[in-house]
Amino acid sequence: MSIAVRRITADDWREVKALRLRALADPVAPIAFLDTVEGAGRQPDGFWQDRAANASGSAASAQFVAIADTGEWVGTVTVLAHREHVDSGLVVGVYVADGHRGAGIIDALLDAAAEWSREQGLRELVLEVHVDNDRAQAVYSRSGFVRTGVTDTVGFGREWVMTRSLGTADGALR
């Protein structure tokens, strides 16, 4: 099975919604996402249309998806302008569907997010991962993220702050 990674379009809002609901139904969702299936499921179509439009056309955010050759959407990652650091992108909404994990999909998604961020002039990617989410921590470490030593406390517990430096087009670190 081959996988294509691409940025979403505004017309993808139905698929964006379906993939988000699938991610929120995952057993680790309570320590991985700041939302629930019930909460997201109550959002009107306009919410999803706006979400897709914002992540497809602005320089402030971008959502990337992994699509199997069968047409099934099997993964996603979003990069937002960091709220505190203007030279950083905040990685959120990372998900790869069960049955597709371990095949390098997350690496391709994170690399697409890094390339887009580099094109926006950003110097690093930042993410927060729950201290009990060992699987995600291992994936992020493998993809070049390192712990900063900072923890953040959110409604469902403590999270490690991790960063990934972005290289320039010639591979040099900024």
Rank of each mutant, 00 (worst) to 15 (best):
G39Q: 08
H100K: 13
S2C: 03
V92R: 01
E159C: 06
H82T: 14
G71C: 07
I67Q: 12
H82P: 09
G46V: 13
T36I: 06
A10C: 01
G99T: 15
P44S: 11
R101I: 14
F156M: 02
V86I: 09
A113R: 06
I3L: 05
W160Y: 13
K17Q: 13
M1R: 13
F145D: 05
V5I: 14
A59D: 10
A66R: 11
S58M: 02
V94H: 01
Y140N: 04
A169G: 05
A66T: 11
A29F: 02
R174G: 12
S2R: 15
G89K: 01
R14G: 10
A60N: 02
I106T: 14
G104N: 04
A66M: 07
T78I: 07
S88G: 05
G104S: 09
M162I: 07
I3Y: 06
E159M: 10
L127C: 09
S2E: 00
E115I: 04
F64H: 08
V86Y: 06
E38R: 13
G104D: 01
A40R: 05
T9I: 03
T78V: 11
R7F: 15
A4R: 14
D107F: 13
T9F: 15
S56V: 00
S143F: 15
L125K: 05
Q137P: 02
A10D: 04
T153A: 06
G171E: 02
A81G: 03
A113D: 04
V154T: 05
R7Y: 11
V74P: 03
G167A: 08
A53R: 09
V139G: 01
D132Q: 11
G157N: 03
V94W: 01
G46N: 07
I105H: 01
A138M: 10
L173S: 07
A23F: 10
E124C: 11
R147P: 01
V86A: 05
S165V: 15
V37L: 11
G167C: 09
L110D: 10
Q137A: 06
A29C: 09
V139Y: 05
R135H: 06
V139I: 12
A81T: 15
L125A: 03
G121Y: 00
H85F: 09
R7V: 00
R101A: 12
A53Y: 14
G104W: 08
R42T: 15
R174H: 09
I67V: 15
A52S: 12
F33Y: 10
M162Q: 05
W13Y: 08
